[in-house]
Design a protein around this nucleic acid. Structure first.
Lengths: 154, 154
DNA sequence: GATAATAACTTAACACGTTAACAGAAAGCG
DNA sequence: CGCTTTCTGTTAACGTGTTAAGTTATTATC
C-alpha cells in the first residue's frame, strides 16, 4: 500500500530512490550488527581486512567506500575494541599497516552466516535476475564521468 | 580505469553499489548546492515545501526521506536562514505547519534550472531507457517486506 | 471524565559524512 | 643538496543518521 498519489516526484528522483533502496537493504543488516555492537561502517572495514589481509588506511578507505577522516575515527574505535591493530609501515614512515585481530576474525566468523542469509533473502524475494540486473546498472552508473570540470575522457 | 582486479566482492554487494552510485549522482548536485549555502537535505526540504505547499514536519520527513530528529535540526537552521517559517496547527496543538518563505522560493527558482540540467545530463549520458529501468528496479526493491519480525504478508 | 495508551515533536548522545586546514614524510627538481 | 611539491594520515568543525528518552497534546478505555 504505497501511496501512488502522494509520491509522484520523489519516486522518479534517482538520488531519493537510491536512498530509499539503501534503507530497505540496510535495515535488517543494521539490526544484526547492532546486536554485535559494531556499526555498518566498522563491519565493512573488518570484512575488507579479513578478506584481503593487512592494508594501509588509504586502501581500506577505497575498498570500504569511506573517506579518510571517517576511517581515522573508525580505526581508533576498532583498535580500542581490540578488533584491529596497527603497525608502522616497514619502509614508508608516513604509512601504517592495519591488521584484523583474532577477536576481529572471530566476530566476523560469528556473524557471517547470518549476513549471508540476509543477502540470500534479498536474492530470493527480489529475484536473482532482477538483482543482477540492478547491480549491473549501478556499476555502469558508477563508471560515468561527472559533468562540469572540463571532463577528461579518462 | 576502474580496477577489475581489486574490487571483486564489493562490486556485487548491493549496499556498496548503492552507496557508490549515490555518490556519483550526488557529487555534482552537492557542488551546486554548496555554492548556494544549503545542504542536500535542506534542499530536499525546500523543494518538498515548494512543490506541495505548507506541511507538518512528519509529512515533510516522509517525503524528503529524513528522520524526525534530523528534520527538527534542519528546520531550525532553515528558519534561522529565513527560508521557511513555522506556525502552530489550527486544531491540533501538537502539530506545526511549516511553509516556505519568499526567500526560500527565490532560492529554489535561482537553482532549479541548474538542478534540472544535472538530471538531464544524467539521462543523456546514462541513457534514458536504462535510467527508467534502474528507477523501476529501485522502486520495486523498496516495496519488499523486510525479513525477520514475523513478516506479515501485508 | 480520570487514566492509560498514542501521537507529534524535541533533545541528547554517539557515530559518520564532508570540507578544510594541518603535520610529517617522501619525491621531484633545480 | 636545499626547496618545493606531493603524499599520507590526523584533527577540527559543522551537519546529518540513528537510537533512546523526554514533553506536551490527543485519543481511547473503562
Amino acid at each position: 500500500m504505497t501511496d501512488h498519489l502522494t509520491a509522484p516526484l520523489t519516486n522518479r528522483s534517482l538520488p531519493i530512490a537510491l536512498l530509499r533502496a539503501r534503507e530497505k537493504v540496510m535495515g535488517p543488516i543494521r539490526a544484526m550488527l547492532s546486536d554485535v555492537g559494531v556499526t555498518e561502517q566498522q563491519w565493512r572495514v573488518l570484512r575488507v581486512l579479513d578478506e584481503r589481509g593487512p592494508l594501509d588506511p588509504t586502501e581500506i578507505a577505497d575498498r570500504s567506500v569511506l573517506l579518510l577522516p571517517s576511517l581515522t575515527r573508525i580505526l581508533q574505535t576498532l583498535v580500542a575494541k581490540g578488533l584491529v591493530s596497527r603497525a608502522p609501515h616497514p619502509t614508508d614512515r608516513r604509512k601504517q599497516v592495519v591488521s584484523i585481530t583474532a577477536n576481529g576474525q572471530q566476530l566476523i566468523a560469528d556473524n557471517l552466516q547470518q549476513s549471508q542469509e540476509l543477502t540470500a533473502w534479498l536474492r530470493e524475494s527480489f529475484g536473482s535476475q532482477k538483482l543482477d540486473q540492478l547491480l549491473d546498472l549501478l556499476n555502469e552508473l558508477d563508471q560515468l564521468d561527472p559533468p562540469n570540470k572540463s571532463s577528461p575522457q579518462k
